[in-house]
């Protein structure tokens, strides 16, 4: 899906599908947002979506629906969402070409 705001790796798509299936209520997909918190200014939010909002940017890829908060679109263009299974922790990771710096903690970033 060329030109989509974000792309999703196979691993991330598989994990999102699993999580959506195991959630105990229906979801329309997942929602990705950005908020102005954290030591480097911005941080990602990643949540289940109960409903679509009017201005959400919608990305559908590999059987996964990702709703993107309209305010976040400009910070996320070209980002790849990946899932990693490391020795100590598992979770999602955003590979964002707009990030110019990242807080040492990895929880927030700036563009």
């Amino acid at each position: 899906m060329a030109g989509a705001v974000i792309s999703i790796s196979d691993a991330a798509a598989e994990r999102v599908r699993e999580l959506l299936a195991s959630r105990d209520k229906p979801s329309v997909g997942i929602r990705v947002g950005v908020r102005t918190r954290g030591c480097s200014g911005l941080s990602y939010t990643l949540e289940f979506a109960d409903a679509r909002n009017q201005f959400d940017e919608i990305v559908e890829e590999k059987g996964v629906t990702v709703l993107i908060d309209p305010k976040a679109v400009m910070f996320l263009l070209g980002t790849e969402m990946d899932f990693v299974d490391e020795k100590l922790q598992t979770g999602f990771k955003f590979i964002n070409p707009n990030e110019k710096g990242r807080c040492g903690c990895g929880e927030s970033f700036r563009v």
Binding site: G101, F109, R110
Partner: peptide
């Protein structure tokens, strides 16, 4: 510090 994000 970085001027925008205050990261050391």
């Amino acid at each position: 510090f970085c001027a925008t994000c205050r990261a050391v």
